[in-house]
């Protein structure tokens, strides 16, 4: 702040504030090192144009991509106690939370929204991987419960999109309990005969994969996403063997019968809409019924 910003009228502040410049105009594909300009990145939905590698897509971008006209309504989530165990490692968990909240502008690692997809009213709960690795503590559990309750109230299908390393260690046993809690929550949706779909994105592991994420009526996965229970490093040190190529990748899970399909990002919206309209025996908009070729191959 300087004398100018202190004394100009609020409406003029926008003019004198430095313009926000993306700190990284170019991004390197982690798979093939191809450099991508940020605008092209946006256009390709964060998929490398060179090798097709699916980079992580920020939660809000994905919601815009999925909902009709990129329009959706976020719901406010009930608050849970911050730092329920008074956990401290080298830093206090309460401070870590504060930092992450300031950095991300989000309260925790989950966003719950509702809107229309192909005209069908849908509730989506999506993980924000940037918030402490999308780890599941009580607030995330609360988000899944709220999303499930909303789906029941609205008589709407529920789609959950995890991107999470697993349970949040700093909430100890209460994180573990979220596995049982979220299981009850999604079961309530299923009991009403409403579709419960899960889109597994990179990564879906640990306590998240071993609860609601593996209980979808239909399981979709993004290409190359790491999905599994135990972390690769833990397995390697336990069995002292090199892991096979492609281990715990979406395609590996498809091969092992653990997911229904691996869907490229550009076909996701159409595929989800088609599945929902089929499950509920409804006609979706005509152009959306066309089957993307890739989905059939997968």
């Amino acid at each position: 702040m300087n004398w100018l910003t202190n004394y100009v009228r609020p409406k003029l502040q926008a003019l004198v504030r430095p313009k926000e410049v993306p700190d990284n105009l170019w991004q390197k594909c982690p798979s093939c090192d191809h450099l991508m300009f940020h605008r092209d990145m946006e256009k390709s939905l964060h998929v490398c144009q060179h090798c097709g590698h699916h980079l992580r897509l920020p939660a809000k971008k994905r919601l815009e991509m999925l909902f009709d006209d990129a329009k959706y309504q976020r719901i406010e989530l009930p608050k849970t106690p911050d730092d329920p165990l008074k956990f401290r490692d080298q830093k206090r968990y309460a401070d870590r939370l504060k930092d992450t909240r300031a950095k991300t502008g989000e309260h925790d690692a989950i966003i719950v929204a509702h809107g229309r997809m192909g005209g069908i009213n849908v509730v989506i709960a999506i993980f924000n991987f940037e918030f402490q690795g999308g780890s599941m503590g009580t607030a995330v559990g609360e988000g899944i419960v709220a999303a499930a309750d909303l789906a029941v109230v609205q008589d709407a299908p529920l789609i959950v999109i995890p991107a999470s390393g697993g349970a949040r260690m700093q909430e100890g046993i209460l994180s573990l309990m979220q596995m049982a809690r979220t299981t009850v929550a999604v079961d309530r949706v299923k009991e009403k005969g409403l579709p419960y779909l899960v889109l597994l994105t990179d990564p879906t592991t640990g306590g998240v994969s071993a609860s609601f994420a593996m209980l979808g009526d239909i399981a979709l996965a993004e290409p190359g996403a790491v999905i599994g229970f135990a972390g690769a490093r833990v397995i390697e040190t336990t069995i002292r063997e090199k892991l096979p190529d492609g281990f715990q990748k979406a395609e590996y899970l498809l091969d092992k019968g653990m997911v229904d399909m691996v869907v490229p990002r550009r076909d996701l919206r159409a595929t989800l809409i088609r599945l929902l309209s089929l499950l509920r025996n409804r006609n979706a908009a005509g152009d959306l019924l066309a089957l993307p070729v890739d989905a059939v191959d997968a």
């Binding site: 596995m179 609860s211 593996m214 999905i227 599994g228 229970f229 135990a230 397995i235 715990q248 092992k256």
Partner: peptide
């Protein structure tokens, strides 16, 4: 935590058991 356990769906088996 093993390759065989993951291949046969450790996560799914635990989720269903819960």
């Amino acid at each position: 935590p093993g390759i065989d356990a993951e291949a046969r769906g450790q996560a799914e088996a635990i989720a269903r058991s819960i």
